[in-house]
């Protein structure tokens, strides 16, 4: 085949067009994502020697590894975030399935709206709402006492369960939306065919509905996991003295201890954690990152 000059030129033009098309994305990525992280990475390798004197070193990472309180909080945050993601998924799935496949045309937007309403208030207000519900002098404790189920005030705040509850609540919408999206494209006839050929509810769910929803599941889980791991307000407020979230450690390094290098190292560890878990999640479910993004 002989390449005609004109076709070559058009190929070049095409490439240039592609480049120009991608330029804003690359710029965005570079300026807003990569540059700050490079700065944080550089900062995380500097150690304070004396006032205003810093040197290169791995001290901040060694500090992280050597000090149990830091890596324990880190591991705890990772574990609880995965737990929160799983619980959110398990709760959101039936809701999304109902909205996507069983709700009638009229009730669908209404149901979606109901999922959306809590998000009109800021996270802070929502969390305060939970605090009012769960605190010792709060609504739930009052109702329990009225119903005779509790003899005195019950404190339901400031424990892991309340943190998980708040985080699941905050993550639900971000799970329901991609799940509903994914499930809406599932033809109802396929579900029926699943039953028609002898499948039980479990079989239909496992072999037809879940595989179809997989891109939504992965996309929702990634979003919820990232939001959870990086959350600050909810664990601090609902967890109280036992909150212990890794973002709090980062905050305290940056803000209360003015130790930016240490905070940067922590921040980098968190980024690493998110990346590894997302990668593992994609790997385990056999989903491609690009495809997931497209379907989400």
């Amino acid at each position: 085949m002989t390449a005609l000059p004109s076709s070559e030129r058009s190929l070049f033009a095409e490439k240039l067009g592609l480049f120009l098309l991608l330029a804003p994305a690359v710029l965005w990525l570079g300026v807003l994502v990569i540059l700050p992280h490079v700065e944080i990475a550089v900062l995380s390798f500097s150690e304070r020697i004396a006032p205003r004197v810093y040197a290169f070193g791995f001290g901040n990472y060694l500090e992280f590894l050597g000090e149990p309180i830091y890596w324990r909080t880190f591991a705890r945050t990772a574990f609880l975030s995965i737990l929160v993601t799983l619980i959110t998924l398990v709760i959101s799935f039936p809701v999304a399935l109902y909205i996507a496949k069983f709700a009638s045309g009229k009730s669908k937007p209404l149901l979606f709206l109901m999922c959306l309403i809590p998000f009109w208030a800021s996270e802070l207000v929502r969390t305060l709402g939970w605090m009012m519900m769960l605190r010792e002098t709060g609504v739930l404790s009052f109702l329990l006492q009225k119903a005779g189920l509790a003899s005195g005030p019950v404190e339901m705040l400031y424990n892991d369960a309340s943190v998980v509850l708040g985080l699941v609540y905050g993550g639900m919408l971000f799970m329901i939306v991609p799940l509903t999206n994914a499930l809406e494209s599932l033809e109802t006839a396929q579900i029926e065919a699943g039953y028609d050929l002898g499948g039980s509810h479990l079989t239909v769910l496992r072999r037809i509905i879940i595989p179809h929803a997989m891109p939504g599941i992965v996309a929702g889980s990634i979003v919820v996991f990232m939001l959870t791991v990086g959350n600050f307000v909810t664990p601090v407020m609902l967890g109280g003295k036992n909150g212990l979230w890794f973002t709090e450690q980062i905050y305290s390094q940056f803000i209360t201890r003015f130790n930016w290098p240490q905070g940067s190292a922590f921040g980098f560890m968190l980024l690493l954690l998110s990346t590894v878990i997302v990668w593992l999640g994609l790997r385990l479910t056999g989903q491609g990152f690009a495809e997931t993004l497209r379907k989400a």
Partner: peptide, 21 residues
């Protein structure tokens, strides 16, 4: 008798093949 227990099978108008299989 529920649908999945009937000795009847259906070829759907849209065929409804399972695309991921």
């Amino acid at each position: 008798v529920p649908a999945n227990k009937r000795p009847v099978n259906m070829v759907f108008q849209s065929l409804a093949l399972f695309p991921m299989m």
